[in-house]
């Protein structure tokens, strides 16, 4: 068949569901088991894929974001055995038998984690793309240091980029979650 400009058109025959399934299955050759947000999971993955892809593509947990996929932005931060790591730099076989917590694992029965609460209350969420990673990093900080200083908050969140908020309200939020009054200045309404 040729189109209006006289060029031969490609024949568009879509592959069948089964064919696509087979192609997908051919990529997933590794059997992986680990603990995810408190539950054990077992599934087939591509041994070269990252934890980021396994979480999002195979388990459809979309809270783990990926702004760079090269370890620079922190938007894919998850807890691996309690420590924050960038899921885009961890290959899935590396988490075999280990414990992973994603942002989805922080709220308990619809009760938000205090950091999640304070992020909303303090206006630390704008576009929200950096938010899950920041919340995971902040939750990890507060888990071992319940009264961080502003400088400790900065240090703990250095690996998490945010392009929208200017970070000021993020610091407010972490300090508020720590049970502190926001110690930083941010004032509205001077006439």
């Amino acid at each position: 068949m040729t189109n209006a400009s006289g060029v031969e058109e490609q024949t568009l025959t879509l592959p069948s569901e089964q064919e696509v399934e087979k192609l997908r299955a051919a990529e997933a050759t590794w059997s992986l088991s680990f603990t995810l947000n408190g539950e054990s999971v077992e599934l087939m993955v591509d041994p070269t894929e990252t934890l980021y892809d396994t979480l999002r593509e195979r388990l459809r947990l979309i809270g783990t974001k990926g702004a760079c996929l090269e370890g620079e932005c922190g938007s894919c931060t998850v807890l691996l055995d309690g420590k924050p790591v960038t899921a885009c730099l961890v290959t899935s076989p590396q988490v075999q038998g280990r414990t992973v917590v994603t942002v989805e694992g922080l709220a308990k029965d619809d009760r938000l984690h205090p950091v999640q609460e304070s992020f909303i209350a303090c206006g630390a969420v704008q576009c929200g793309y950096c938010t899950p990673g920041l919340i995971v990093s902040a939750a990890a900080l507060l888990a071992h240091n319940s009264t961080p200083s502003v400088e400790e908050v900065r240090e703990a969140l250095e690996g998490n980029l945010c392009r929208c908020t200017g970070y000021t309200k993020i610091i407010d939020a972490v300090l508020e979650a720590a049970g502190d009054e926001p110690a930083v200045m941010s004032v509205g309404g001077e006439k």
Binding site: A67, V150, L157, G159, V184, V187, G189, E190
Partner: peptide, 23 residues
Amino acid sequence: ASFTDYIIPTIVDTPTIEALVIE
């Protein structure tokens, strides 16, 4: 063309911003 080489401010580069709203 990457976040490794195109550097944007982190929380450590940033002081507390003091926003004053005039009305």
